[in-house]
Structures are given as structure tokens and as C-alpha cells.
Design a protein around this nucleic acid. Structure first.
Length: 546
RNA sequence: GGCCUUGUGGUCAAGCGGUUAAGACGGCGCCCUCUCACGGCGCAAUCCCGGGUUCGAUUCCCGGCAAGGUCACCA
């Protein structure tokens, strides 16, 4: 068969010499050991935690080695495209401090572009044409129905499914048959003529999983779809070669198609990159666990975390603790070192699927917030409120001095004793809401309405806003005694039956009256932040209700 | 079903032939205490199972089992 003529018929016209591409995209001039990694999302615009997980690994590996992280858009599937997706991806990642050195919509030199696969069609076709001319790829005219039927037959016969060996009907078409199909205008795809033998097993070194055994590929996979656009597999080989990727960190779901990729690199005469297949982030789903999915877990989208007001650094720290098991210990020892100074290592990445744990994230968030100054906390909350908060919440920031005094109380003293109530911006805003408006509802009291009324009345009689914290509390004890409540906790615990309750109950009545909540930071300080008038008004209102 | 990967407490995990099997989150209890939060101190684990190898196996080998991934003109 005259493969050259066939290639010319299939892909007519002049394509650049293949060696031109090598010159156009020469090996990068980078220091020894520098890694070139990439993120290659399809432009659906939706990113979730799992994507961020891989993104952080790629980012760390590139940047700590003095290498390059670039963004490539895998838009070979027309059906999946979403407007504005690239911007959305970039924004979401920027929030989590993932910076690209080059790539789609990234300012800079970008000499290894274009970074949209659709714009690279000619490069792919030039190589496909060469493959055909060398007899290593061929047109396939099988219809969807034929393929489905083949598959059914293979399943019924318990054979491995797919287009390979004796089942690869179009692989052995005669020259006449091919041209007849072409003349008839039949649509076709281009498939790789695989030379692999699945009986051949080889061990392959994966940067994350270590040595794994893979078999050679024997599937005649589609490399060029009927619309003339390459499939992922083919584009991966071409792009990662010419963009000079050194290390491909990608999801574990790609492991199964690794043999295809290896054969592709070989047949194209490219040196293969190193690979690291990252375990996916899992989610508990009833009895079982499964990897995060765009479809089923919209609540795990990055946008969700921004709306909730998660602190980007906390999410990043959490991801790093999952990514490298020695990170947590390092961070404990080096709390003030920049995260970038942690030596990230692909080989330390977990080999098995990791369950996403919101409790752990929340714990880390609380720690991260506790490290902030009141000013920084206020700034973070304000930024969040301006974008996601209600109008009422936006107004919290009209008086920044007031906000600061609220945060000073709610965050506690600096250092080891710092309070850790805040997990997210939205939750923090809710926690401090009573400083900005009268509580809409009150949590339930342990004390009866009659006693509450009596307690509040005698409190009001003795209340002096000028009292200091200790003086104020001493009076609270007097109020307790006067109403049959124990002034001292020890006395109460020793003989609970002798009292209606304790100072704790008295304090609770006051606390709920003023804040609506049973649990708050120091009450005396709250009273003073609110001011005499407001505090008294709330107590009066509570007495009326009782 | 075939193939690949993984299997240490509820979760994330250290551990690499001899350990009382780290640590963190969560849970529970106690202390501190006007509540909460913080902080402190405790408690909870037949290392998936069965065979080997070995004086000795969580660690090595084999066989099961279980979980996950994947088998597209989707990435």
C-alpha cells in the first residue's frame, strides 16, 4: 500500500517539516533539576477541591525547583465548552495562590503556545499525517453502531473489549476499499496502528506510586476524531512533548491509559516525561466512598468555599497536610516560615484515596484565623462581606473601631490563649451578629420565666455600668444569693438540691437576654462594647418577655 | 468480568523484621471555669483474613477478600 499517497489524500496540503517543530519549541533553558509541570483542565469552568489538590502539587513541584507551571486548555471536546471558563479557572486558582508562569490567558512570553488545543490543530495534523505516511496510523470508517455491536459481541464472548487485533476491521482494509469509502464520502477517524503486545509486562516508575507494572497497549485508539480534532491521548503526547513538560502530575484515573501514552510517545519518537499519578480525593457516599465528582458534588466546588468564606490559606494548609504526610509536623515546628519553604516531595504523596474531612479543615481554619491580627481578621471579613454578605453584614464595617473591639474580644488574648471560634467568614459573621443588631431569637433558658424576671429585676437594681469586671461579677453573685441561687460554684456542686441554681444560671439568663446565645465570650466585656444604653435596653426587653 | 492500584484506630497517617504501634482531627471523661472557646491531663486499636519464611512478622513471600480506578470519536 502506498501510505504516502494515502496520507496526502487524507490530509492534503503542505504541513511543516516535523523537525521545524523541534526548532520552534526547543528544550527549555532551565537550571538543572527544574521541573516543568502543567495544569490542563477542560474548559467547563468548574473546579473542585480535587482539582485544587492536583494543582497545588504541580505548583509546588514546579516552583520549588525553579521550574515552570503553565496552563493548557484541553478544549478538544466541543460539547463541554463553557463561556468564560478559563477566567473562572484562573480566578478560582488565584484565590488559592496558584500562579502560572505561562499559558492560556497568562501574561508573559508564552513561546510554547498556543495553549488552547483547538488552536494547535495543524501541529497535531502534521504528526498524524506523518504517522499515516509511515503506516502507523490508518483511517477507520466504522460507525458508532458497528462499534457498539462489536463491543456487545466481545462482552458476550468474554473477550477484552475494544478495537484491537483481529477486531480492528479497518486496520486491514485494502487500498481499494479505503479509497472507495473515501470516494463515497464516508466519515472516518484516524486510529493508531498499535504494535504492542499485552502479554508484555514491564515495570514503570511512577513518581508517586513507585514501581508499577503495566502491559503494552494493543488498542488501536482513535487519535484524530472525525472532526479533525485529536483525542486527549494524542494531544497529550504532542503537547507535553513540545511544551517540554518534565513531570506530569495528574489524577489516578489516567493510570489505565498510561500504556497508550507510552506507545504514542514512542511511535512519535519523543522522549517521555516522568509521571506521577495522584490518588483522588474521596467523599463518603453512604456506605462506600468515591472520588469527588463535578456532577454529584457541587458543594465541593471551589466557588462554594469562597462563598462560605473559607480562608484560602487554611484550605491550602489542609491540602498540603493531605498531600505530604510530613507537612503537618514541619508546619508545627515552623509555624512562621513561608509555606513555600516546605520541601514538597512527590514520592511522599499518598498512594491511596483520601477521604475529605471537613472537621479537620475546620480545625485548621480556626488555627489559621487565630494567627491573624484583629486588623487582618477584620480585613478578611470585610472582603468577604462585600462580595457575599447581606447588606446588614456589609454595614458591620461602617465603624471599623467598633469592629476591632468586637474582634479583640472574640479572638481573645494573643498567643496560646487565643480563642478559636472562627472557622469561616460566614460563620464568624453570624457569631458576632449580636453586636450589630438585637438578637432575633433567644436560645432556650434553663431558668424559669418567673425566676428570670426576678433575677433581671434585681440585677437592674444593682447594675452600675462603671463597675469593673470583678466588681460587676461580685454583684452578680449577690443577685444570685438574693434569689436563692448559689453564689459559689463549689457550694452549688456540693449540694445542688439546696439551691434553685448557681451563678452560672444567673449569668446565662443575662447572657441570653443580651446576646440571644447561651455561649459567648466574656459577658462583662460584651456589655461594655454594646454600651450602657443598648445593654440596658436589651435586658429590659428580656424582662418584659419573661 | 478483564486489567491496574491500594488495604495500620471513625478520619488523615508515622512506622521499612524485635516499638508499651508516634502524632493530628473527631469522640468520650476529668481539670480550669459565670457559659463557650482556649489551655492542661487522661481514655478508647485483635495493624483486612489465611497460609508460609524466620528465634521473632504490622513490616518479607504466596493465596484470598475488600475498596477504588479504568475499559468512548470525554477529558
Amino acid at each position: 500500500m502506498d501510505y504516502k499517497a494515502l496520507a496526502e489524500r487524507l490530509l492534503p496540503g503542505n504541513y511543516p517539516e516535523l523537525s521545524n517543530f523541534e526548532e520552534l519549541y526547543p528544550p527549555r533553558d532551565l537550571p538543572k533539576g527544574a521541573e516543568v509541570t502543567r495544569l490542563a483542565p477542560s474548559p467547563t469552568g468548574f473546579i473542585h477541591l480535587g482539582n485544587l489538590f492536583v494543582a497545588i502539587a504541580n505548583e509546588r513541584i514546579a516552583h520549588q525547583s525553579g521550574g515552570v507551571l503553565y496552563l493548557r486548555i484541553e478544549d478538544t471536546d466541543e460539547k463541554r465548552k463553557v463561556e468564560g471558563a478559563v477566567e473562572a479557572v484562573k480566578n478560582a486558582l488565584r484565590y488559592f495562590d496558584i500562579r502560572f508562569d505561562e499559558g492560556a490567558e497568562i501574561e508573559g512570553e508564552n513561546k510554547y503556545g498556543p495553549y488552547y488545543q483547538r488552536q494547535r490543530a495543524d501541529i497535531y495534523r502534521a504528526f498524524v499525517k506523518d504517522l499515516i505516511a509511515r503506516g502507523r496510523a490508518y483511517p477507520c470508517f466504522c460507525t458508532e453502531e458497528e462499534l457498539a455491536a462489536l463491543r456487545e459481541r466481545q462482552v458476550a464472548e468474554k473477550k477484552i473489549t475494544g478495537y484491537y487485533g483481529e477486531y480492528a476491521k479497518c486496520r486491514n482494509l485494502s487500498e481499494e476499499e479505503i479509497y472507495a469509502n473515501l470516494d463515497a464520502g464516508k466519515p472516518y477517524v484516524i486510529r493508531l496502528k498499535s504494535m504492542g503486545d499485552p502479554e508484555h509486562k514491564l515495570t514503570f516508575h511512577d513518581e508517586i506510586k513507585g514501581d508499577i507494572t503495566v502491559t503494552e497497549n494493543d488498542q488501536d485508539v482513535v487519535i484524530l476524531k472525525s472532526d479533525g480534532i485529536p483525542t486527549y491521548h494524542f494531544a497529550h503526547a504532542i503537547d507535553d512533548h513540545f511544551m517540554r513538560t518534565t513531570l506530569v502530575i495528574r489524577g489516578e484515573e489516567w493510570l489505565a491509559s498510561l500504556p497508550i501514552h507510552l506507545e504514542l510517545f514512542d511511535v512519535l519518537g519523543f522522549r517521555r516525561p516522568r509521571y506521577g499519578h495522584n490518588c483522588s480525593l474521596m467523599k463518603q457516599d453512604g456506605e462506600t466512598r468515591r472520588k469527588l465528582s463535578k456532577r454529584k458534588d457541587p458543594e465541593l466546588s471551589l466557588e462554594f468555599y469562597r462563598k462560605e468564606g473559607y480562608f484560602a490559606r487554611a484550605v491550602k494548609v489542609y491540602m498540603l497536610t493531605l498531600l505530604n504526610s510530613n507537612f503537618e509536623e514541619w508546619y508545627r515546628k515552623n509555624p512562621d516560615a513561608p509555606l513555600e519553604s516546605f520541601r514538597f516531595s512527590a514520592s511522599k504523596m499518598s498512594k491511596s484515596g483520601t477521604l475529605f474531612d471537613l472537621d479537620k479543615l475546620n480545625d485548621i481554619s480556626a488555627d489559621e484565623f487565630a494567627r491573624l491580627s484583629e486588623e487582618e481578621m477584620a480585613a478578611f471579613l470585610k472582603e468577604w462581606a462585600m462580595e457575599y454578605g447581606t447588606d446588614a453584614q456589609k454595614a458591620y464595617f461602617d465603624d471599623m473601631d467598633y469592629m476591632k473591639s468586637v474582634l479583640t474580644l472574640c479572638m481573645g488574648t494573643t498567643g496560646k490563649k487565643r480563642r478559636k471560634d472562627f472557622k469561616t467568614a460566614s460563620q464568624a459573621m453570624e457569631l458576632i451578629s449580636y453586636f450589630f443588631a438585637r438578637p432575633e431569637s433567644h436560645e432556650s433558658y434553663r431558668v424559669s420565666p418567673e425566676d428570670r424576671k426576678a433575677l433581671l429585676e434585681s440585677y437592674l437594681k444593682t447594675y452600675d455600668h462603671a463597675d469593673d469586671s470583678q466588681g460587676w461579677f461580685a454583684k452578680l453573685k449577690e443577685v444570685a444569693s438574693a434569689n436563692g441561687f448559689a453564689a459559689e460554684m463549689k457550694a452549688y456542686k456540693a449540694d445542688p438540691a439546696a439551691y434553685k441554681g448557681s451563678v452560672a444560671d444567673v449569668a446565662e439568663v443575662l447572657r441570653i437576654a443580651v446576646t440571644g446565645k447561651a455561649n459567648t465570650p466574656d459577658l462583662w466585656t460584651i456589655l461594655h462594647i454594646l454600651g450602657k444604653e443598648e445593654a440596658t435596653a436589651r435586658i429590659l426587653a428580656a424582662r418584659e418577655e419573661a
